[in-house]
Design a protein around this nucleic acid. Structure first.
Lengths: 396, 396
DNA sequence: ACAGTTTCCCGTAAATGC
DNA sequence: TGCATTTACGGGAAACTG
């Protein structure tokens, strides 16, 4: 009987991490007023019990509530669910909750994105006259009230799951442990590989390691504190390492996903290394790099050119922001970018994507065909390159 | 006694039009899930009654509910209010309601932006053993569920109040009356003058009249149907006159308010008249005009130039959209706009704002000072004019 | 005063209803 | 099926609150 009880207890698990459907890549972060889904399951392994359990569980009730930590939450919508059989699995049950509404009760001791909460599920099983109370819970979740808290909330989830297997250590952030660079590197690369077709290369990771830890021969084994990762501003900057990186991840996903997937974006490269690899290249060779100074995520290109004296120069353009990429794609910006050369002629300084891919080959397919102005007047030159908008003769 | 009763009845009025605080310019339109405020007042004129009424009314209760028409609404939050004295007035009472939540009950016979609803207020007055029931109501309101319904909802409010003084004709739109151009013109000009520092000129109104009514010598007295104003698409366009105009009003308020207030935007002018007034002007003379083809509101400029043969040409640029004006102000676009001339030199075709205001004088003060790139390399020409972004030497 | 946090609500997109 | 209407929720801004 005790064996059975223990078997059942270990079989009642919160299967999926609670998740907002619009943020499948960022489970365990929940926003007040936004729907989320969560699920518990009974993993029954004895075929001979199946039918019996099926019957019994048809009307079992699972209660779900928020508890722990310094706040209390109300759930709008039902917080009890009848366990239903899943066709594909033994005794699986799902409970879907909508409209979590937070009711802040006690002041928190930690900042809100470091407060961890558990969603607890309870049920009762009756078997051969025996009543068994079962309880299980989700991994710790972070509850936010505005999406602008998502980056820090997600950082908390990453740090927790990177450094502990403990299922319910809600006080983790009262004294968060350090991580090694090897652990952090894996997590950072995963942030890209899980949402795009490409993770981070060794070169990219080394650039990031240098940002976090300063110059060093071998970063393996170096320790990174939670504060360094997410809480302290970077030297001379008004934002933390993670906030900077997360805005770049957002930029990549929303504006330059195709180029990133192709591997056209070197992205993370120090200015020194950039100069070193570009200098020996022919003029017109360029690479794409993320802005280091913009909190909001920006991308720029850097190219080689020869000045009037024939000396090699490395040039770059002021980074493009999400705002600018809203009205023109980055591929189109690259293809259309022109500067005035020494003889006052407009030329494109971008010819070969590093190491030697012709610009048209790499970016041509990501440009819309040029708009054909409905004109009765000859096109007055490359007006569209200059203004972004096409000139035509009074027809609008 | 009957005199007193009638006096009281006429003194109990819904003073202000219900309004969403974020839309003070558009009262009588209410969005589900968005707070609105509304107020009733007792206009008591007898000084000798004041004190008595003060006492009596301190605990009067005003009930507020939605009714009429084909729907029913619930109010989240209290729908009863104790009448409180206002210091500055006799017996004034305010009731503030939050979070109107619509519960669609019966299917509507009209489209939602033409359904008119009344907010009804009730109270009871006891005076010298006499009980008097008082009732009053707001003007008809339109209830919307998404802000994208605001233009049509506001058009309904305008048409109703332009054409009737009836306080509660909720069936107005089952057979909406026609308006005259004179009435419509006044309302249209008021849409600008009430939210900016400038209404519409006779010339601008005449252009609008022509859009609504076609070419005509004198529009005064011409009739405009509700359908023409707001329901039918304009000839060859996928949107109604009002939707087009309301998007322009929005463009003006959010993106080019200062230029509008200065009177720099001619805005509404036919292509024929534009050609007629620009042709005799020196090359480089330009004017600013709203897009006629864009539903979302766009603005363009048209200028005079001489072609290679010395013939006068009228040119214009593809209209700028709100999207584009997000990343650069229109004044900056005008100041920075350049095209390639016949000899392959970049020049600005914009010199004098019609009739003869130098461009710099009109728009210079609305441009941010040019960003100073942190450069150690000479500026490679007017790179910033070409790309919008500034070139510098690898410093980012 | 002020910084962390929540609320408000537009505007786009998706879902729903009819 | 297509169109009208509502719901969902990110994101910027304002309001709140200790």
């Amino acid at each position: 009987v005790d064996l059975f009880r223990n078997l059942m207890k270990s079989a009642f698990v919160a299967e999926r991490q609670p998740c907002m459907p619009m943020h499948p890549d960022r489970p365990l972060v929940i926003k007040t007023g936004v729907q989320f889904t969560t699920k518990v399951r009974l993993l029954v392994k004895f075929p001979e019990l199946n039918y019996q359990l099926k019957i019994k569980f048809l009307h079992c009730i699972v209660l779900c509530f928020f508890s722990f930590s310094s706040r209390k939450f109300n759930i709008l919508g039902t917080n009890t669910k009848v366990m239903n059989m899943e066709e594909s699995n033994n005794g699986s049950l799902s409970a879907e909750f909508k409209h979590l509404v937070s009711s802040a009760v006690t002041p928190a001791s930690l900042i809100v994105t470091e407060e961890l909460h558990l969603i607890t599920f309870e049920t009762e099983v009756y078997h051969q006259g025996l009543k068994i109370d079962l309880e299980t819970h989700s991994l710790p979740v972070v509850v936010i009230s505005n999406i602008c808290q998502m980056p820090n909330a997600w950082a908390s989830i990453l740090w927790y799951n990177m450094l502990t297997n403990h299922p319910k250590n809600v006080n983790f952030f009262t004294n968060p442990p350090v991580g090694t660079w090897d652990q952090v590197a894996e997590v950072l690369s995963w942030q890209f590989s899980s949402t795009t077709k490409r993770g981070l290369t060794i070169e990219q990771l080394t650039t990031l390691a240098e940002k976090l830890l300063g110059p060093c021969v071998n970063y393996s084994g170096c320790q990174i504190t939670w504060a360094k990762f997410c809480k302290e501003n970077m030297a001379g900057k008004g934002f933390s390492f993670w906030v900077w990186l997360d805005n770049i991840i957002d930029l990549v996903k929303k504006y330059i996903l195709a180029l990133w997937n192709e591997g056209y974006i070197m992205g993370f490269i120090s200015k020194e290394r950039e100069r070193a690899i570009l200098s020996p290249k022919p003029p017109g060779t360029f690479l794409l790099r993320f802005s280091e100074s913009s909190k909001e995520g920006g991308i720029t290109f850097t190219w080689v050119e020869k000045d009037i004296n024939g000396k090699t120069q490395i040039q770059s353009v002021e980074p493009y922001t999400k705002q600018q990429l809203n009205s023109m794609s980055f591929a189109e910006i690259i293809m259309g970018y022109k500067i005035m050369d020494a003889t006052n002629i407009l030329v494109s300084p971008l010819v070969y994507l590093y190491p030697d891919i012709p610009k048209e080959e790499a970016f041509g397919k990501y440009c819309r065909p040029e708009a054909q102005p409905d004109t009765e007047f000859p096109d007055p030159g490359c007006g569209e390159c200059v203004s972004g908008n096409i000139v035509h003769s009074g027809l609008e």
